[in-house]
Amino acid sequence: MNLLAIIFVAILANNIVLSQFLGICPYLGVSKRIETSIGMGMAVIFVMTLSAIVTWLIYNILLAPFGLAYLRTIAFILVIAGLVQLVEMILKKTNPTLFQALGIYLPLITTNCAILGVAVLNIDAGYNIIETIIYAISTGIGFTLAMVIMAGIRERLELVNMSGFVRGAAVTLVSAGILSLAFMGFKGIVTL
């Protein structure tokens, strides 16, 4: 039951983009077309899960026992950047098809704050390893959901006749705000 609550909260009630405002950069940058937003979403789910597991292990094995919890930010950045690079190299050699599919999104999300955010949130919430994995996957799904909805809205906005000064960034930010308000409706359904 607890795991179900984690999934629901991570995808809808506490959506990483629309409620916690992490990962706004790719959310606005890569959400022009549904296809690319799905590609980005898949890459985020993949990297987020992997980095959450590794950072959880590093925190609980290396940092916490020695009272070095305050070093977690710098350690996590190091680990995530190194990990993504490593995954990219291995994928390029062993699975070129997947490498092509994930494309430039892999290096892009190395410095994504949502990835670091999930690693830190896992520690703050005191999750065990299984809860960590579930939370990371569902947060990635929530990110993908927000991206795909936004891309759908933006694809339609492209065809709307509107004055020049709201076109582009302005109308995108306004619709992102309204979408975020809509997701606030999920708050309070489940409390952790």
């Binding site: 940092l63 020695f66 710098i74 350690a75 190091l78 680990v79 190194g82 690079q85 490593l86």
Partner: peptide
């Protein structure tokens, strides 16, 4: 620990 992490990841890469 931090230096070691850096070394390990550097070597791994």
């Amino acid at each position: 620990i931090i230096g070691g992490l850096g070394l390990i990841f550097g070597g791994l890469l």
